[in-house]
Amino acid sequence: MSELARQYPDYFPARPWKRVIATGIDGAMVWVLSAVAAVPGQAIQWGQILVFLLAWWVLRVAVVYRNKGQSLGHWLMDLRVIDQRGRTPLLQRLTQREGILGGLVLLALVAVDSGLGFAILLLVAPVIVDCSWAWINPRHNTLHDLISQTEIVVAYRGFSLDRKLIRLSQQIRAQRSK
């Protein structure tokens, strides 16, 4: 049991699948925003990379810092980022955390966008290794969480997108079975 779990027993660690969906929502938004800066015909999209990094920092650091530990993806999935004290992490910790994750996500997206076969595997592997720790660790922490001493927990405020989608799918199945 972690120190945080002993001090704050009401903080439940977020399930890895919810974390993946929340990060995927944020990552997709940032990638769409950065696609605007793409220049056709260029091998390396420096403008797109710069816009991606800036948008990632704004969405995953500045918004989280100002919004009680929740990015848009975290809000949709009822999650929040906390530090060892159970509070929203300081700007420096959030920047460290998201610098690691954002860099790994950027590598993976560049690999997928380039379509270079084996390079895809090499550039996607670091983000897979980092996030796979969430399934191994009992508190569902990833490597970037361990390094930055943060944790993703279930929040008491949010949109509950997962619950709404489950309820909708149950209603659809019930209507089809009639």
Score class of each variant (00 low, 15 high):
2 S>Q: 07
5 A>M: 11
8 Y>W: 10
11 Y>I: 07
12 F>A: 13
14 A>F: 10
16 P>T: 06
16 P>D: 03
20 V>S: 03
23 T>A: 07
26 D>A: 04
27 G>L: 04
28 A>C: 02
29 M>F: 04
32 V>M: 09
33 L>K: 00
33 L>I: 11
34 S>C: 02
36 V>E: 07
41 G>V: 09
41 G>F: 05
45 Q>G: 15
46 W>R: 14
48 Q>K: 11
52 F>M: 07
52 F>H: 10
55 A>F: 03
57 W>D: 03
58 V>S: 03
58 V>L: 11
62 A>G: 00
63 V>I: 13
63 V>E: 00
64 V>I: 04
66 R>M: 08
67 N>L: 03
67 N>W: 04
68 K>S: 09
70 Q>M: 00
71 S>L: 03
71 S>H: 04
74 H>D: 13
82 I>L: 12
86 G>L: 02
87 R>D: 13
88 T>E: 00
89 P>I: 00
90 L>T: 08
92 Q>I: 09
93 R>F: 02
93 R>Q: 15
96 Q>V: 15
97 R>K: 11
98 E>W: 09
100 I>K: 10
101 L>Y: 13
101 L>A: 11
102 G>N: 06
103 G>I: 05
108 A>I: 00
110 V>M: 09
114 S>F: 06
114 S>K: 06
114 S>Q: 08
119 A>M: 11
128 I>H: 01
129 V>T: 08
131 C>Y: 13
131 C>I: 07
131 C>K: 14
133 W>I: 06
134 A>T: 10
136 I>W: 10
137 N>M: 06
137 N>V: 06
139 R>Q: 12
139 R>H: 08
141 N>W: 01
141 N>Q: 15
141 N>F: 02
142 T>W: 01
143 L>K: 06
143 L>W: 13
144 H>S: 07
145 D>C: 05
145 D>M: 09
147 I>S: 07
148 S>F: 04
150 T>K: 12
154 V>Q: 14
155 A>S: 15
161 L>I: 08
166 I>L: 14
170 Q>D: 14
171 Q>Y: 06
171 Q>E: 10
175 Q>V: 13
175 Q>L: 15
177 S>W: 01
178 K>N: 12
